[in-house]
Each structure stands twice: as structure tokens, then as C-alpha cells.
Nucleic acid binder design. Structure first.
Lengths: 254, 254
DNA sequence: TGCACTAACCTGTATATACAACTTAGAGAA
DNA sequence: TTCTCTAAGTTGTATATACAGGTTAGTGCA
């Protein structure tokens, strides 16, 4: 029953776990092939395969003659791939945490009412959270939710279950619309993100539909210096291979 | 000099070429490891690595006991409108024009060489253009093209046929990778875009693949105050999750 | 006929070995 | 001191070998 994983996969898991646990940090040295041969009792080719695949998947970078080093994950997420920032961060093996700044009921007005296709004065919940990756702020989530769609929204502990996780648990999303902008954040946003004046923010404005109507409208501010969106398009070749190969166009550790 | 590729890479290229040429069609059987051992004069482990990586990259699917088969990837190319800003602008009923600032041959180094997967010093063409919508600058295109991919690049009048239009006329694109960032542009970029100091830029960094290798690397700067990216996402029961949903991305003038 | 079994494939993994190329620390010479 | 060169360690690749397990066609028995 317990299908034993291949040895090379066990090695990969072991190293990924150590990275996830923070035991190995970006640019730290990963045990060399020969060290793995001795400590893990495998052949060098098996250790080579484990480290090579971790390199292909972006977890580590290998330099002939020097060694293998933990990649400096730069925050990135997939364009148009609507996903939970908590999952995104955890998918990088990092720790997600968040703080709830505001969680209240308001009457929709102006832009919000228009975006949600409701009359002025309709009840909406206003949520303001800061999301942290390994303790560093990476997103300010300023979200409005149609109260009739998620009536128990104010009772949720949104620091534990993120708004988008909670909302998708209520009903599947049908459609999402995103706008990406570069903008100068105001002082409040700057303070939440811990960025200096003059640094731009990457702003994602997202509307999500469920049951045929828009149910939530969110402004997501990210620090321009620490966050980027990646998109990937493949007509004929290479559908799979997780996040694979392609993504690294930055990160030389200096 | 022509650094000889590893044997396993030669095998991969060979099979990709046969797929690209239509000689091997989806669900066709690919030569088995043992057949490659005999016909290509390699060891089985080398053939195994080639086929295994092709599997990881989605070109083929392998079934233990049965064999290796060309993946059934679906029909081609949307994204082309994304590739060409001239079409996007004209699609809005506006007038596109562009000015060529630089069109020269350089030796790849640092980030460029890394992004294009070539050695330092490899010939690349450097193109710098400014694109205008109704006379207003909307994009600075800073592009590097593998010289071996587009040897006649310097003879083109890129103000008439945009670089991306010219490149797609040479060979179909296999894959595109995009990164979106918010950043403060330098003085040169600011001047080209006609924006004041302190205004952020929305930067799209795009790499495109053809014939299995990255062939061009472009940085596209847009004025943050006048440009945004919009995307649309629908999660219908698309069996192919990874590719199709990430596709539609269009620029909109505010 | 119908069925079970087997032989011949195939992929998946693991090991031992070998050589090449690269990097760096340190020994040793000027 | 400063420079050069070497030795050790590292990754990258290639091969030969071995065994496990999945799949299929075909043999041969009932």
C-alpha cells in the first residue's frame, strides 16, 4: 500500500523540506552530490538527478566548480491565474501570514457600486488585509464583497483563512477580470508595505463573478521592488513540468 | 566556436525537429530507448534522459510497458495580437507609428546571454524602438534577438514592420513568457515616453521561444499613467489547465 | 472456442565508473 | 609581498549493467 517513493524523489523532498522549514535559506549552499552520496547512502548519479531536477524546477541553482545553492525566490505569480496569495507563497516554500486591518460593513457607493453592479447604498463588506511572505509585506488587499453573497464574512477569521479562500469555499468563481497598473501608492499603502516614498507599486484590480454576477472587487497593491507577475503561454509544446525551467530571468546573487 | 551540445540534447532536438516538421504527429510512437541506442549509438541511459526530459517538458508522454508517444497538444496560436503592439493599437481604431532608435549588433553578455541561453559574446541584435498611439508615446521596446535566428534583422525597416511582426514571419513562436513589473524608469526611458520624473512605468519583460530555444528577449516600458494591462479569466472545464487560461492579455488605453 | 500463461518488449530506477570542465583555496616561487 | 600554478572539490555528461514492473501479442492447453 505504501508506495515507496524513488530515492531521487526522497532526496528532492528532503531538500525542499529543509528549504520550506527555513533551515536552508536563499543562496545557502546545498549538500553537494558527493556529500549526499556519503550521508544518504545513494550513488552519485541518483544525487545528481535529484539536484538536477531541483535546478530545473527552480528550487536551486547549480554552478559547476562551486556547488549548489538555494534559489533566491523572487515573488512572482501567474498572470490571469486567479489564485490565493497564501497558496502562492506557500507554493514557493515560504511562510504566509496576514494581518486584518479592517473588516466592516459599508454601504456601496460610487466606484464600488458601479463595479459590483449594485445600487448605491447596498450592503458590502470592506476588507483590508496585509499579506506577508516570510514576515515581509508583499500585498495589501483592499477588497469589497457583496454582503448578500457572503453574509457570514464578518465572522470569519480572515487572518487564518484568506478572503479569497473563504469566498471560493462559498461558491466557485465563474469569471475574473484583472487590470494591472503601475502606480505610486499613497502614504497608507506605503506604510503597510514598508516601502519608501518614490517606490512604485504594482497594482492588480480584480473583479470576480459567481452565479452570474460580480461578487467581489479587490485592489491588490504590491511593492514594485519585490513583486512581479509572470505569465506563460505555450501553443504547441511544453504544457506541463510544473513551474519548470523557464521562469528564472533574474537573480544573480551578488 | 560551435560548442557541441550534449548527446542527450542532440537527441531531444532531433525528436523535437521531427515533431515540428510534422513527421511525427500526435499520438505517434517515438523511437524507444533501445531503438535510439542502436540507431543513434548512445547508451540507454542517455536515451532515457532525452525521452524523460521531453516527457517532463510535455512534448511526449511515456507509458511503462507500451512506449513513448507524441503529446496531443491542441491547435495553435492565439497570443499573436499580444505580440504585436501595432495590431493592438490599430485594433482600437487608433494610429500606430514607431521610431527606430537603435538597430545594431552586439555581443551578448550578462543578463541577456543568460536569458537567451547562449554563451557570453554570442552575436545578438539590439533593437530599441518607441511606439506611438495617435502620436503619443506608449511603449519603449528594448529588444534583443538571437542573430542566428534572424540574420537579416538589421536590413529590415522596423518602423514599418514591427520587430515582433518580422520575427513571427520567420518562424512560428512556440512559447512566450512574460513578467510584469512596476518600476521607476531611467532618464532615457522617461524621455522617450515623455513622462515626468517620479512617474512609474509598467514594464513587461517577455521572452519567446522558437524551435525549442529562446530567440528574443524584450523589455517593454509603458507609462504608468497612461497604460494598463487587462486580462480575463474563465475557469470552464478546460482539460488543459496550464496553457489555455493564461492566454488572453491585451493592452488598453485608459 | 476460450482461457491462462509466457516471452518479448517497454519504461523506471539505481549503481559503479569514467572523464571533462570549472572554481577556489592554498602552496610555492619570484 | 605578489603572483602563478597546482590540487582538491564541484558539477556535467556518458556509458555499462542490473533489476523491477507494466503491457501486449502470441503460444499452447483445456
Amino acid at each position: 500500500m505504501n508506495a515507496l517513493k524513488p530515492r531521487y524523489q526522497q532526496l528532492k523532498d528532503l531538500i525542499i523540506d529543509r528549504i520550506s522549514a527555513g533551515e536552508l535559506r536563499p543562496s545557502d549552499r546545498v549538500p553537494s552530490e558527493n556529500e549526499l552520496v556519503e550521508t544518504m547512502n545513494v550513488s552519485r548519479m541518483t544525487a545528481n538527478r535529484a539536484l538536477r531536477e531541483l535546478n530545473d524546477e527552480g528550487y536551486v541553482e547549480r554552478v559547476a566548480g562551486r556547488g549548489t545553492f538555494v534559489s533566491d525566490f523572487r515573488s512572482q505569480s501567474h498572470l490571469l491565474e486567479v489564485q490565493n496569495i497564501a497558496d502562492e507563497i506557500r507554493g514557493r516554500g515560504h511562510t504566509h501570514s496576514s494581518a486584518v486591518v479592517r473588516q466592516s460593513c459599508q454601504h456601496a457607493r460610487g466606484e464600488i457600486a458601479k463595479a459590483l453592479h449594485v445600487d448605491q447604498g447596498t450592503d458590502v463588506f470592506h476588507l483590508l488585509l496585509v499579506h506577508y511572505e516570510n514576515g515581509t509585506p508583499v500585498q495589501v488587499e483592499d477588497r469589497h464583497v457583496l454582503a448578500s453573497f457572503a453574509p457570514e464574512c464578518l465572522e470569519q477569521d480572515l487572518a487564518v483563512v484568506t478572503p479569497s479562500a473563504y469566498l471560493t469555499s462559498i461558491a466557485p468563481l465563474q469569471e475574473a477580470e484583472q487590470v494591472v497598473r503601475a502606480a505610486m501608492p499613497n502614504a497608507a499603502i506605503r506604510q503597510h508595505l514598508g516601502i519608501p516614498e518614490g517606490e512604485p507599486a504594482l497594482v492588480v484590480i480584480r473583479r470576480t463573478w459567481s452565479k452570474g454576477r460580480p461578487v467581489t472587487f479587490a485592489r491588490l497593491h504590491h511593492p514594485g521592488s519585490r513583486y512581479e507577475l509572470t505569465g506563460h503561454y505555450t501553443p504547441p509544446g511544453t504544457p506541463r513540468s510544473t513551474s519548470a525551467d523557464v521562469v528564472r530571468l533574474e537573480t544573480l546573487k551578488k
